[in-house]
Design a protein around this nucleic acid. Structure first.
Lengths: 225, 225
DNA sequence: TTAATTTTTTAGGCAACACTAACTATTATA
DNA sequence: TATAATAGTTAGTGTTGCCTAAAAAATTAA
């Protein structure tokens, strides 16, 4: 039996070990990186790592990096799947808004019932992506793939569509809401300023300028027009 | 902040202090009764009682009975409300069956989000009773009332309709399922046997004999025909 | 009304998870 | 390469929520 806390550690490891959502490249994770992500002290995390290793959910040698075992990854992906299905449910069936769904899904993701997850999945029509545009692993842990880049990687003159955000902080989501940017928003890159790496864009005839930081955190699919 | 465990204690006190679902009469509850209901040891419960008293959720004097404070009752009813709304959701929207809904709702009832509860309530059309026929407290803690008696209190020759069960054990529910008795099943009382207090009934032209124990655990509304 | 039984409380332990403080290993840098 | 900075570990603590064993109070029965 995996505890709620352990589930959160596994989920964190899934997030931290992939460089960006939907990207299959793997990164090694250290104790303090994990600690800071979970807003815990390294000593706390270090203790939990022992337990997770004991349960064969992670590989970890003293002073070395952490990787998930097959079992750890499978279990972590199950939580990610549930999180994203619940977010989709809240957004599409209960009219929660984009910003609120995350924290409620943080709780719902820990509900233990295979059947419930599958029923929700069916109710939603087996979606591949959640309202933030992040891929929903299927019941076998397979993650739907998609060609994505950050908005900063899009060429001048190209048209693209927002698929996901890599920063899900309230501040960032609020900022996007002010600009009326959400999933599926179409963006045309008007110009890229070399000086400060900012970027000029157009959304529905309105022009804006986005900083490099913002453009880095927007994942888009280039629109084949 | 009330912990998940504390919520379960409050809910248990709500159940134990009302003699039967939907009945407003109150009963005092002792430490070991609570302990046996929660499948915990008295010492464990005793310790928790201190914490609940500290938080002003119960009244409790050494060696005396336990009663809920206003705040304790309000909070407990919130859990009962959530439990029954989730049961209704699982039953009517996700086609879970009557027997399965309870244990999943035991988890879902602890999700903390006012908004979620209200959205679910709306989605369900503000139901007054759950699939077991138990009343759903409204958001102010008011419990829909209804005239109910146990099947054993129904007079010979009278027709009634099943509204709720007071025993929700798997065994009992399975037994009812075998007899094809569920919520809204119409029952005619053919005869009452004085000898062993059993009762002869008719359901859709089929006759059965029910023991006193079973008849005591079936709450019915007498049908005004 | 005393004795037996049951209920409640106390005392002492344990596991999961969190913390601080102090120490050690690794990595980066001057 | 020596040393400073960073990362990781250990030791000792606290809280929650559970346990067992044993004592004390209340209730029931002889």
């Amino acid at each position: 039996m995996i505890s709620l806390t352990e589930e959160n550690y596994l989920k964190a490891l899934i997030y931290l070990s992939s460089l960006a959502p939907g990207i299959e490249e793997k990164k090694d994770v250290g104790t303090s990186e994990l600690a800071s992500y979970l807003k815990l002290k390294s000593s706390t995390v270090n203790e939990m790592l022992k337990r997770l290793k004991e349960k064969n959910l992670i590989n970890h040698e003293k002073y070395k990096k952490i990787t998930l075992t097959h079992s750890g990854e499978r279990n972590g992906l199950k939580i990610v799947r549930k999180h994203r299905l619940w977010e989709t449910f809240l957004f599409t069936k209960l009219d929660f808004d984009w910003i609120e769904i995350h924290e409620v899904a943080e709780q719902l993701e820990h509900i233990k019932s295979e059947k419930l997850v599958e029923k929700i999945d069916r109710l939603l029509g087996y979606p591949n992506f959640d309202p933030h545009g992040d891929p929903i692993p299927n019941k076998h842990g397979k993650i739907p793939q998609r060609i994505t880049k950050t908005l900063s990687a899009v060429n001048k003159g190209e048209k693209c569509v927002v698929l996901a955000v890599s920063d899900t902080s309230r501040d960032f989501l609020n900022y996007l809401e002010d600009l009326d940017i959400s999933i599926k928003t179409e963006i045309v890159v008007i110009d890229k300023i070399g000086y400060d790496k900012s970027i000029k864009i157009k959304i529905k005839h309105e022009q804006y300028s986005l900083s490099r930081k913002v453009a880095d955190n927007l994942l888009v699919g280039v629109k084949l027009n």
